[in-house]
Design a protein around this nucleic acid. Structure first.
Length: 426
DNA sequence: AGTCCACAGGAAGGGCAGGCGA
DNA sequence: TCGCCTGCCCTTCCTGTGGACT
């Protein structure tokens, strides 16, 4: 009987001719006509619209190097996605095009978000010139002076002009102080054959307040400020990029203005605008449609926001995850909480799952870190005799974040302890 | 004007990990 | 193996703070 049924089902199943699950995605070229990598921030276009003035300023400074002199050190300021890095990389490309054997400039690019200690920045820079693995500076174990000395030796051997680009420099200064900048600003004193200039890129204009006066004057010989793009400028940037990447007619007329408007509201971030456009187009492509609509942009906006939260929360250290879970638990009682409220809840949570709690001092720092990451909004407030504390509010979707945390291996025991814990909370 | 509260946040230092050279 | 290096996470101790209360 069962055998007959199997035969019957097999006969009624209409097996498609398609031979591979990827076929329909690979075959589809209704939207993208070329490499979608052109919509990523890492792509440096041949033209940078609305940055002509800044390009000209930087070119004038760098051109000194092409005449054999050391260019001035430069500090570049501007918010995320205002084209700072793209402009510097664009200038580096242009400089290499016009370089000759006698007048060439080497650029070393260091992202101080990825390479975020004084030691690792120097190690990264020194190793750029070393091909033999045995001669390279190790990831740690050497004194900073030794790595600096290796860097100077290697640079001097090159007998050329070097421009060190330190991207996200403000983060490095906030984290480790200005010792590295002090050393780098004096590096030319010890070089006889080569010259070094520094280009610092920062989001925060105020970071120079944290610099020693000598470092500040040496480093900030020239300053360039990148203002945020407005919606019209973002529209131009997107149109230019869209012409390269999309099939004509693949974008609804309102798509680019909408992406530009959303990004303009968020401090004129061109990266954000490009990401919105790319994610919206990929969403339409996955649905098998031939055009991108405004609905795709709104879906892309929500997806990017949720993805960002998910990625940030997933990569938090375990104690920060417990702290965040404590905030979520407490916020079921009250939306706005204080450091004291959260610490009491966190302490109970630790006890209920058998974890060792940190001190309140440390938790204060972790709350500040969550604030920096945009997971919570915190502000210091005084309640008079009620004391001075931080008022904290969650800035992430509650339910989604709770699910992420409870699914975490480290907090899985919370599921079992939850009932027990909630009675102690009351 | 002085007191009080509930922290904020700086400074110093301990402990540990990972790596190197002697 | 030992001493030294850096980086990281954390604690302890301390002073500072703003506004309500006395």
């Amino acid at each position: 009987m069962s055998e007959q049924k199997v035969v019957h089902e097999t006969e009624t199943l209409r097996i498609p001719l398609q031979t591979n699950v990827f076929d329909k995605y690979i075959a589809s070229d209704a939207i993208f006509k070329s490499d979608r990598e052109m919509l990523r921030p890492s792509y440096i276009p041949k033209v940078l619209p609305h940055r002509e003035k800044e390009i000209d300023q930087l070119a004038a400074i760098v051109s000194t190097g092409l005449r054999g002199d050391r260019p001035s050190n430069v500090l570049i300021f501007g918010k995320t996605g205002t084209g700072k890095t793209a402009t510097v990389k664009f200038i580096a490309n242009e400089a290499s095009r016009v370089s000759t054997a006698s007048t060439s400039i080497d650029f070393i690019y260091v992202n101080c978000c990825e390479v975020d200690t004084n030691y690792s920045v120097l190690q990264h820079m020194a190793n750029k010139f070393i091909t033999n693995p045995e001669e390279r500076a190790p990831y740690n174990g050497w004194s900073i002076e030794r790595v600096l000395s290796l860097f100077k030796d290697m640079v001097d051997k090159q007998k050329r002009l070097l421009i060190v680009v330190l991207d996200e420099l403000d983060r490095l200064v906030y984290k480790t102080g200005d010792d590295l900048l002090y050393s780098l600003s004096r590096v030319n004193d010890d070089l006889s054959n080569s010259k070094v200039s520094i280009v610092g890129i920062a989001n925060d204009l105020k970071f120079t307040d944290f610099l020693d006066a000598r470092v500040k004057s040496r480093l900030g010989e020239e300053r360039i400020v990148f203002s945020p793009y407005d919606a019209m400028e973002l529209t131009d940037i997107l149109r230019l990029r869209a012409d390269l990447v999309f099939v004509p007619g693949a974008l609804n007329d309102d798509v680019i203005p909408l992406c530009a408007a959303i990004a303009a509201q968020e401090h004129g971030d061109a990266r954000r605008a490009l990401e919105l456009l790319r994610v919206a187009a990929e969403s339409a492509e996955r649905d098998g449609r031939r055009s991108v609509e405004t609905g795709d942009v709104m879906r892309a906006k929500n997806k990017i926001e949720l993805d960002t939260v998910t990625e940030t929360v997933k990569t938090l250290p375990s104690q920060s995850k417990m702290l965040l879970l404590s905030m979520i638990i407490y916020s079921e009682k009250r939306r706005i909480m204080t450091t004291g409220d959260i610490y009491a809840t966190y302490h109970n949570l630790c006890n209920s799952i058998g974890a060792q709690p940190l001190t309140q001092r440390r938790i204060g720092d972790l709350i500040s870190e969550l604030d920096m990451l945009g997971i919570v909004r915190a502000r210091v407030r005084s309640f008079g005799r009620g004391g001075r504390t931080k008022e904290i509010e969650l800035a992430v979707p509650l339910n989604e974040t709770r699910e992420l945390l409870v699914d975490d291996e480290l907090l899985s025991s919370y599921k079992n302890a939850r009932a027990r814990f909630q009675t102690t909370l009351i």
